[in-house]
């Protein structure tokens, strides 16, 4: 790890001010990705600006059909929230299965989606539920937020404040875990609302994406069997020592079928 200066701020305005003044500043939320990256010298920010003191970034509220979760809300808080469990149980389950207890007690929703790890779980839910990412500058639709491997639509001085998740009639998340890291080799979030089906796929490609072919097959025939005929192109699939592109493409279908079954 290289030297850096650390600042804890108590408002979004101060956070933006601090990052604009810094030579190469970075926000830190739970630090569960940031700190290991710095430790391995893959990142060396001049300034680390801690968002942990900003109260307005925290908390969960349900308003009509929307569940709003503050960016600094931890995975453990989402998993344990009776509001989330009642409104979108699949989302609470997803959060409760991220990493281990230490990671869930520190890691945050905002940090997870800002980081956009290709194997992270939350991005599948943001896309699958058609959520909206709220920042200090604007609202970004889930479909447009994730732009590439570890890349998002965020600008350098943009702070995620909350994510707005619409409730679904039925939803489920199925994760095929990497046996070593327990991140998603493939994770599929399926949500059905008013007859329209959305599918968010993580782990399979450079970053989470909508499973358009799967949605097409499932719209009008929301059954596991409908998935059988779908061709999943393997060209864009990730391939590594844990899973080849072909196997990942296969798992996308299996996890989708299981998510659809879990919805009924």
């Amino acid at each position: 790890m290289y030297n850096f200066s650390y600042q804890k701020v108590s408002s979004i305005a101060d956070a933006v001010d601090a990052i604009q003044k810094a030579e190469d500043g970075k926000f830190v939320a739970g630090g569960q990705t940031m700190l290991p990256t710095m430790k391995h010298r893959l990142a060396s920010p001049s300034d680390v600006i801690d968002l942990g003191g900003i109260d307005e970034l925290k908390g969960i509220s349900v308003d009509g059909d929307t569940v709003t979760i503050g960016a600094m809300t931890t995975h453990a808080e989402v998993a344990a929230s009776s509001d989330v469990q009642g409104a979108i149980p699949a989302l609470a389950n997803l959060a409760g299965n991220i990493g281990d207890p230490a990671v869930r007690n520190r890691g945050t929703l905002g940090g997870s989606i800002a980081n956009n790890d290709p194997a992270a779980d939350y991005p599948a839910a943001v896309i699958g539920l058609g959520a909206t990412v709220k920042t200090n500058k604007r609202e970004i639709s889930g479909d447009e937020f994730f732009t590439g491997m570890f890349e998002t639509a965020l600008e350098d001085d943009e702070v995620i404040t909350a994510v707005l998740f619409p409730k679904a009639d039925a939803s489920a998340y199925m994760k095929f875990e990497n046996p070593a890291s327990r991140y998603a080799i493939v994770g599929v979030f399926v949500a059905s609302s008013g007859g329209a089906v959305k599918v968010g796929v993580t782990g399979a490609t450079a970053c989470a994406h909508r499973g358009m072919r799967l949605e097409e097959a499932l719209n009008g025939n929301f059954t596991a069997d409908a998935v059988d005929g779908v061709e999943i192109p393997i060209e864009k699939m990730n391939s590594d020592i844990h899973a080849s592109a072909e196997y990942r493409a296969h798992l996308v279908k299996v996890m989708t079928k299981r998510a659809v079954e879990a919805c009924s």
């Binding site: 046996p179 070593a180 890291s181 991140y183 020592i241 844990h242």
Partner: peptide, 24 residues
């Protein structure tokens, strides 16, 4: 039997160099 194995890439780089990739 099920999980562990050290793997190198074709350049001789160890790719199971952390518990993110080496399955205990």
């Amino acid at each position: 039997a099920l999980l562990e194995g050290c793997q190198y890439d074709s350049d001789g780089q160890l790719i199971t160099a952390s518990y993110m990739d080496y399955a205990m």
